[in-house]
C-alpha cells in the first residue's frame, strides 16, 4: 500500500495503472509521469523503491493539479458561471444540459431519473 497525493492508495498493479486511481490523472498523465521518472512500464507499485515513490509524489505535487484542488477549481468555475447570471450559469442552476443539447427527449444524465407526470392521461383505444 502506497500513499501518493493525499488519500490515494493504489495497490499491486502496474504504476501506469495505479496512478490513475488519483483524481485528475488519467492514462496520458500516468504515462507521462512514468517516462519523466524513467520508470519502466512493467514495474509494479510494490516494486518501487522509497526514493521512486518520493519522486512521484514530488512530481505530482509540483506539476499536476489533483484531487481536492482540482475538484475545488471545477466547482469554482461552475460557481463563477452561476454567479454571473449568464446562460450557461442558468443551465447549471437548473440541472439541464449546458451546451445546447436537446431536452425534449434524453438529457437523462443531467436531469436525473425520469419522473412520471401526475395527472397525465394514458392514451387508450
Amino acid at each position: 500500500m502506497a500513499r501518493i497525493a493525499g488519500v490515494n492508495v493504489p495497490t499491486n498493479k502496474r504504476v501506469t495503472i495505479s496512478l490513475r486511481y488519483i483524481y485528475g490523472i488519467g492514462p496520458k498523465k500516468a504515462q507521462d509521469i512514468c517516462t519523466k521518472l524513467n520508470i519502466p512500464d512493467d514495474r509494479r507499485v510494490n516494486q518501487l523503491s522509497d526514493d521512486e515513490i518520493l519522486r512521484i509524489r514530488e512530481l505530482i505535487d509540483r506539476d499536476y493539479r489533483v484531487e481536492g484542488d482540482l475538484r475545488r477549481e471545477l466547482a469554482m468555475n461552475i460557481k463563477r458561471l452561476m454567479d454571473l447570471g449568464c446562460y450557461r450559469g442558468l443551465r447549471h442552476r437548473r440541472g439541464l444540459p449546458v451546451r445546447g443539447q436537446r431536452t425534449h427527449t434524453n438529457a437523462r444524465t443531467r436531469k436525473g431519473k425520469a419522473v412520471a407526470i401526475a395527472g397525465k392521461k394514458k392514451v387508450t383505444k
Partner: peptide
Amino acid sequence: FGEFSPTRTFTGHAAD
C-alpha cells in the same frame, strides 16, 4: 452579450 439576456421563458409545466 447574448448570454446575459435569455430569449426563452419557461415557467414550468402545468401538471407538476
